[in-house]
């Protein structure tokens, strides 16, 4: 495989090559994937789990899981970044379920982190991270305030549709429809950017 420039966003084909190398346990590939995508994974861990120790464990688990499931990655189905973030969110929620012994997660979104926030341009592999984040932010900006708020309540705070409905005094079906609409708009906005 030709060397991939660590700072440049990858095409779908390059992502497939990189994941194929990851599956083989190739050290350069592991480092490349890490440098490109570890920051959003770690950030999500910090936000959902609330400590740097837990976020570090989550990051390690995500990359291990990505290696284990690398054979299932298909670029036709989505980008490597979203695949890794889906793994990360799932693992974080699983961890919260286990730790709290409940049938669904009770997330505590850490809004004010004691940890330092990195500058947009700082840190390893930051260009890829910044590009991905920029795409995500622009996709989020395509939503209304209400839609963004709904997604934050559900994805980052772990509130069920029923809880949101009760809190806001609106019908359950309406909440579900709005959440679904918001996700579909988000996906379309992101696809348009690619």
């Amino acid at each position: 495989m030709p060397p991939i420039q660590a700072q440049e966003p990858l095409s779908a084909r390059e992502e497939a090559q990189l994941v194929a190398q990851l599956l083989l346990g190739d050290e350069d590939a592991i480092r490349d994937v890490y440098r490109r995508f570890a920051r959003p994974v770690y950030t999500l861990g910090m936000r959902l789990l609330g400590s740097s120790e837990a976020a570090e464990e989550l990051t390690q688990d995500v990359f291990l899981m990505a290696w284990r499931k690398a054979a299932r990655f298909d670029t036709a189905r989505g980008r490597l970044s979203t695949w890794l973030m889906a793994i990360a969110h799932n693992l974080a929620v699983d961890r919260l379920r286990r730790e709290h012994g409940v049938t669904r997660p009770h997330l505590v979104f850490v809004e004010e982190l004691p940890e330092r926030e990195a500058d947009e341009g700082g840190g390893a592999g930051s260009i890829e991270s910044v590009v991905q984040r920029d795409l995500a932010r622009r996709a989020m900006e395509s939503l209304s305030d209400a839609e963004r708020g709904l997604l934050v309540l559900a994805y980052l705070r772990g509130m069920t549709a029923r809880e949101i409905a009760e809190a806001d005094g609106i019908p359950l079906g309406t909440v579900k429809t709005r959440l679904r609409t918001a996700l579909i708009k988000l996906r379309r906005a992101n696809m348009k950017e690619l």
Partner: peptide, 15 residues
């Protein structure tokens, strides 16, 4: 995958 975009839009922490 769409939901993952919410997580990716967060201000990023330093590794």
């Amino acid at each position: 995958e769409a939901a993952a975009m919410v997580g990716m839009s967060l201000p990023q922490s330093e590794l």
